[in-house]
């Protein structure tokens, strides 16, 4: 039961994260902002709606969101909690988590291409290109975390805190994971989640033709994915393993809040990068990860 607590927490609390980000952005802009629970309201409304299906679409349009959400759910199964390891963990499980997220991405890309819309094709193309670049960066940061871990699994690597010599390279990893979070979840500076019609869009433009329960699956899946990466970033820093369960949970939730606020702040103070600059950001993150790995191994 204990092992499932944090999964349930993720399933319940994930939609809160977009709400908090929006609240931070609104406050920074001097507005009151939407309710914190807006994503829950949206989800409740969406599942009660009917769907509008494009004439062009096949079964893929419906299958995409369902497969995507299921794949994100499976990735969550591998994520450890603040007080307990993941329900399933084995050497190399980070690869399964990353590839589950890949399946989720492929399902959405295909669903987007299913409509035959050029906008959605554009979003799909960019999503495919940038995520492919983010993948090696993510793997490299996992390798840094793996150094000295009892087992090279998410449960073994995460939650140990910044152990060993507190060298600067240890601090790179949370930063890199944060950049990967921004890329994979299509946040500023890679993508702007607030505008639906700009040609610069990635994720939001891919889901233009989804509606009703399909859209609910997509929104919920995106929230879960955001939770997954935020938790990854938090657990890479905090030594929750060495704390008591209650303190671990408190620290974890505080950390999640901090990461969420940080995303909101980044979105408030930064502009979106030109598309062709995004690879430089990811390349920089990758180089930093490689440097960090070499330094960590060498010490």
């Amino acid at each position: 039961m204990n092992a499932l607590t944090h999964i349930v927490a993720a399933l319940v609390l994930a939609p809160l994260i977009p709400g908090i980000i929006n609240r931070v952005k609104a406050r920074m802009a001097g507005r009151v902002g939407r309710p914190l629970l807006q994503t829950y309201y949206d989800l409740a409304k969406l599942i009660q709606k009917g769907v509008v299906v494009s004439h062009t679409a096949t079964w893929m349009l419906a299958a995409g969101p369902a497969v995507s959400l299921a794949a994100v759910g499976c990735a969550l199964l591998l994520l450890p909690g603040p007080a307990s390891p993941a329900p399933v963990s084995f050497t190399g499980d980070f690869m399964l988590a990353a590839y589950c997220l890949g399946l989720s991405r492929l399902a959405l890309i295909l669903a987007a291409l299913d409509t035959g819309s050029s906008f959605e094709g554009m979003g799909a193309s960019r999503e495919a290109a940038f995520s492919a670049l983010a993948e090696p960066v993510l793997f490299l940061s996992f390798l840094v975390l793996a150094v000295g871990a009892p087992e090279i699994s998410l449960s073994g690597m995460l939650g140990r805190g910044l152990t060993g010599v507190l060298a600067p390279e240890r601090l790179f990893v949370p930063l890199i994971l944060f950049i990967v979070l921004l890329t994979e979840n299509c946040r500023i500076p890679v993508d702007d989640p607030t505008t639906h019609l700009e040609l610069t869009m990635i994720h939001e433009v891919m889901v233009l033709d989804h509606s009703g329960p399909d859209m609910a699956f997509i929104v919920y899946g995106a929230a879960l994915k955001l939770w997954f990466f935020a938790a990854l970033t938090v657990l890479a820093v905090l030594p929750v393993r060495s704390l008591s369960p209650a303190a671990g949970w408190a620290a974890f939730l505080a950390g999640m809040l901090l990461v969420t606020v940080a995303i909101g702040l980044v979105e408030s103070v930064m502009a979106r990068l030109r598309l062709m600059r995004v690879p430089r950001l990811l390349g920089g993150a990758g180089a930093l990860a490689a440097l960090s790995l070499v330094l960590t191994v060498w010490r």
Partner: peptide
């Protein structure tokens, strides 16, 4: 859910 709340076909949104 969609059977309960209706399904409508329309052109792809342009």
């Amino acid at each position: 859910l969609t059977a309960a709340h209706g399904r409508r076909a329309a052109p792809t949104w342009g």
